[in-house]
Simulated assay, not measured.
Amino acid sequence: MAKNISAPSNSIFLINCLLAAQTAFQPFQSFTRTRLEGLRSTIADHSARLVESQYAFFRAESSLEPLFTVLSPLSDARSSDVATLPSLPELRPEALARAAQGLDDFLPSAVMDALENVKNLHDARLAREITEEAADRFCADFEHVEELLVAADEAVEERRARGDGGGGEERVGLRAMFPRTTGEIRVLLS
């Protein structure tokens, strides 16, 4: 029946069915142990799909998907590529201002909106755990972006101090245009 339902609703439907079956088998563990293990495994698989769905929701609705996409290939804040970050279209002042505003608009109701996506899941504890795991992954991505923005600002300042940095024009740092911190995001998504 779930094959005719689109994602993520199909995973919610399956988890609800599997939880009901698990509840029915629970009193008879002596001879349903193998079946229960299979049910738990399938529930875990579909829960992981819901985590992915919630994670994609956080990325898209926060307006940070473009930043995450362009910065995810950079694995190290000490990379020589960091100094070139301010030239990326996604890190131009107007793009960063849009991303920061989108994030600020999203954060006040982010968790409630995400929980709304899994409201039909009968196990409220599981819905909360799925959403928290997705939020943790989102925070890890945000932390990576924050580290790279700080590193890019430091690299530009170092170049400017050495006299390599584009004359005397005044430049607003990336962090000044995108001031949210990972700590703030973690608090707002908890």
Rank of each mutant, 00 (worst) to 15 (best):
A2Q: 05
K3F: 14
N4R: 08
S6F: 05
P8S: 05
N10I: 06
S11C: 10
C17A: 09
C17G: 11
C17R: 14
L18S: 08
L19Q: 13
T23W: 13
F25C: 11
R35G: 06
E37Q: 11
G38F: 03
R40K: 08
R40H: 11
S41R: 08
D45N: 12
V51C: 11
A56P: 15
F57G: 04
F57M: 00
F58Y: 09
R59F: 09
S62M: 01
S62N: 04
S63K: 03
L64D: 14
P66F: 02
L67I: 00
L67G: 05
T69N: 15
T69L: 10
L71K: 06
L74P: 01
D76A: 11
S79L: 02
D81F: 06
A83M: 01
T84C: 06
S87G: 01
P89K: 06
P89L: 04
P89R: 11
E90L: 06
E94R: 02
A97P: 15
G102F: 04
L103E: 07
D104L: 07
F106N: 01
P108L: 04
A110V: 03
A114M: 07
L115F: 08
L115A: 10
N117I: 01
K119W: 14
N120V: 03
N120G: 13
H122F: 07
R125K: 12
L126R: 13
A127G: 12
R128E: 10
E133D: 15
D141A: 03
F142Q: 07
V145E: 01
E147V: 04
L149N: 05
E154L: 09
A155E: 05
E158N: 08
E158G: 04
E158Y: 08
R160P: 03
G167P: 03
G168K: 09
G168L: 12
E169I: 01
E170Y: 11
R171M: 05
V172Y: 10
A176V: 00
M177Y: 07
T181S: 13
G183E: 09
E184H: 14
V187Y: 12
L188P: 09
L188S: 08
L189W: 05
L189F: 11
